[in-house]
Design a protein around this nucleic acid. Sequence first.
DNA 1: TTGTAAGCGTTATCAT
DNA 2: ATGATAACGCTTACAA
Lengths: 339, 339
Amino acid sequence: MGPTLEEVARLAGVSRSTVSRVINNRPNVRPETREKVWHSIRESGYQPHAVARSLVTNRTRVITVIIPEAVNTLFSDPFFPLLLRGATDACNARQYHLMLSLFTASAERHEMYGRVLYSGLVDGVIVASSPLDDPLIPDLQEDQIPFVSIGRYPDEGVHYVDVDNVAGARMATEHLIRLGHRRIAAITGPLGTVAGQDRLRGYRQALEGRRIPVQDELIVEGDFTEGSGCAAAQQLLSVSPSAIFAASDMMAIGALRAVRDAGLHVPQDIALVGFDDVPTASVIEPALTTVRQPIERLGSMGVEILLDLLDNEQDAASPTQRIVLPTELVVRASCGATW
Amino acid sequence: MGPTLEEVARLAGVSRSTVSRVINNRPNVRPETREKVWHSIRESGYQPHAVARSLVTNRTRVITVIIPEAVNTLFSDPFFPLLLRGATDACNARQYHLMLSLFTASAERHEMYGRVLYSGLVDGVIVASSPLDDPLIPDLQEDQIPFVSIGRYPDEGVHYVDVDNVAGARMATEHLIRLGHRRIAAITGPLGTVAGQDRLRGYRQALEGRRIPVQDELIVEGDFTEGSGCAAAQQLLSVSPSAIFAASDMMAIGALRAVRDAGLHVPQDIALVGFDDVPTASVIEPALTTVRQPIERLGSMGVEILLDLLDNEQDAASPTQRIVLPTELVVRASCGATW
DNA sequence: TTGTAAGCGTTATCAT
DNA sequence: ATGATAACGCTTACAA
């Protein structure tokens, strides 16, 4: 490691405190002194020792992203990398550092609690896509650890950022209705997740808004994966929908496969709409009509809210932040209408 | 924060030193004392303060993944998330923590050098997919910071883990040769990256091995993206290849689009092989023959090598680790032969 | 404006 | 086997 405060101080002929004041841009240093100290800092290549600093300030300027379940879909989707991209950007902008805490086994989980959460290593936490029944968020609340949830969390006092899943699903379904469809099926996401629930809610809202009865036989639960989409579509084909809204693109792609295997065509026989706008969506035949969400901003806003929280921790409790970012319908070929 | 060593010591009626010995599993503590101390530790919920510990041990047990260029493809590929998954698994297994340092602007870069590399915050670095002309690796060498490169780096003394890009490309090309093709075109990756070069080399080796002349007009450079694959294929169509080897699946998908737009069919008119086995590859029509690589293990092995390095730092210089993991040909429909 | 000195919570050395 | 005590490199009252 490089030189310490002490050495810089000696070099500049001042005391440690003065160098500390200078490096932290604090007032009460004569301009000439300040200049002299800066000179010694540059000359010596001094770099503050983050760990020593943290020990006294009790802040590490490190936050961590925790993903409770290493959901499979997370590692094939572009969701995760884009979220991290947004999060790191926001961290960079404010001189924070981002750690990544993934864990699968629940044994790992408790070991992680100690190592990450209670060891003073991180100042705060970003919780990404926590299932409703996961104990992580309750645990964080109880331990008073500052955190922001990526994804709506139905509990007062939890700060979150989410995309408007309800509106997105509603737009997608309304689009199908406008195209004349009345028997519109839904392949939902896992109903143990808020995203799964919200996208189903949007579908319902669209139907109800147009006085179209919601039929249980037209709704099948999937788990966001291609395989589950295929299976769900096979089941749905027996009740002959004229259109399918899938709550994820991967499920839509699975549904497409099922429809084809049944000798039918998209969009001629069945119209299809997905959700997410993964890169694959624009590349398959027919290109998939879908709902696009600002994933990168989800990550950056989540981090910004968390850092605001951390920077005002001494103040009175800040109001709960609940941010919902807009989604956007991307019309392509799979719904049978491009305009 | 929770209780300190001091408080646990008082609770157990011993000194700080003894508690420290117990929590670090060191010898020279009477079994009864040890038990008594553990009791107080559990009772008080004591958790060692990582920062204080680091200050004296001069190790943070944090490593960071640096990706020099936020290559676009990195955020649409599954490469990045899978790599991180492997890396975090390896970290978890050895009680290390993983930080993520992405940066785009070179201004950010130097700010990052100071904040991350020279501030004592991290013990070592994983460099992922560094372009050959990026100064990061030379900088790390000069500053004697322990690091491992993900991706072959042609410099003695650099530890790296890579997949066998050469063999993968050779297998893919040989497969096309076996199917009777002689005019096999290549859409290469960026030739400023080792992966781009190696995959081209594998292509050449396959041709040369069968005494098929390598023709420059059949080789076009891409940048791993779908768009570049499409453009490259358009150019290649004018010299009528009977097969195309694309150095990435996304480029293969772009090529597929170009071939279709030209009114031709895959695999009847042109056979097509990709590289990566992204999820999309198995889902498009026709399903893409491609080369699969063990990305997750790439990440975990990279971390393991780095941690070995860190744990033996006091010892004499360890031999340079150069690990090449095998790739695998996945035969699907796009090459015109499934067996 | 500047310097002195007391911590921050550990580990590690050296007595006992 | 156990306990004082001195670091580790910094920030921060408090004094000058």
